[in-house]
Simulated assay, not measured.
Amino acid sequence: MLNVIRPDGNGVSATDRGVAYGDGLFETIRMRGRQAVLRSHHLDRMVADAGRLGIPVERSDLDAEISRSGRDMVSEYGDGDWVLKLVLTRGDGGRGYRWPVECEPNLIVTSSPMPMLPPSGGVVAAFSQFPLTVNPRLAGIKSLNRLEQVMASREFTGEEFELIMANADGQLLEGTRTNLIVRMEGEWVTPPVESLAVAGVMRQYALECLRAAGHTIQEQVIPPALLSSCGLRGLYLVNSVVGIVAVRRLGSVDLPVDDGLETICDPLKTLE
């Protein structure tokens, strides 16, 4: 049974395993009125990753909660854009890491206003000094264990839209809240899922659009030198809330900016 926790109801239990151990995962969904952007992608990922963690949940229950939240928020947001967050935890459990014998997951539902979208001419990004480590058994899961991103976010000075994180070898993997897609002459480059802390649904959708349009994609970690090579055509940051964002300056280096990815991939076409 799925226990749904909403802001107007009972709060999260002090024994919730998501609170105690980060034992869960979440989705952050851009809404437009009652409809969700990338709805099917979000549902597919949450069910698949919950299965990887051994948390039982039905896709139909999550889908119903998105619909219910859309209806409930009409009075506050109308037909405008807003953000729905679904946090799925294993539920309540006693002391210790071992799972409870019977699992009754909690689904914590919250909403927030849509953040201001970045300018179309591109944004400023910088390199984070905090390294990103990825356990291959947990790669790609948008779990509640996001301390590395929290620590990296302390480095924001106010000018940057995003900080880009690297592994211990200095190879670039992702932003604190975005995935990376690089446009090179004749191909696109993005780190593979097995190297990522979070494999975003916007990343997945963008790659689907590129493949459908016949483009070549190389999935590999990104050496910093690639972003200063003569073949670079653009660096994009992508997530399901802000969509596709071009980077015009990375650190102290100006980057080329084009609208190549935006013309191929429009997430607002996925409204359901």
Rank of each mutant, 00 (worst) to 15 (best):
L2W: 01
P7G: 14
D8C: 05
G9M: 07
R17V: 07
V19H: 01
A20Y: 05
G24Y: 04
F26R: 09
I29V: 15
R32H: 08
G33R: 08
V37L: 02
V37I: 11
L38F: 00
R39E: 10
H41G: 01
D49C: 11
G51F: 02
G51T: 03
G51R: 03
I55D: 04
I55M: 02
D61V: 07
E65H: 06
E65I: 14
R68I: 02
D72A: 12
S75G: 00
E76S: 07
G78V: 03
G78W: 09
D81G: 08
V83M: 00
L84I: 10
T89I: 07
G94P: 10
Y97E: 01
P100C: 06
V101W: 02
C103E: 04
P105M: 14
I108E: 07
V109Y: 02
S111E: 08
S112I: 05
L117H: 08
G121K: 05
A126M: 08
S128F: 03
T133D: 11
T133L: 07
N135W: 08
P136M: 14
P136I: 13
S143D: 11
L144I: 09
N145A: 04
R146Q: 13
E148A: 14
E148Q: 15
A152N: 03
R154W: 07
E159N: 09
E160P: 12
N167F: 06
N167E: 03
A168S: 05
D169C: 04
T176P: 04
R177A: 12
T178E: 04
T178V: 04
N179T: 13
R183Y: 05
E185V: 06
E187C: 10
W188G: 08
V189Q: 08
T190A: 10
V193T: 09
S195E: 14
L196K: 01
L196V: 07
V198L: 12
V198C: 12
V198W: 03
V201R: 03
Q204K: 10
Y205A: 04
L210Y: 02
A212K: 15
G214M: 11
H215N: 09
Q218M: 14
P224V: 14
C230H: 09
L235G: 08
A246D: 05
S252E: 14
D254S: 06
V257Y: 10
D258K: 12
C265Y: 12
P267Y: 01
L271G: 01
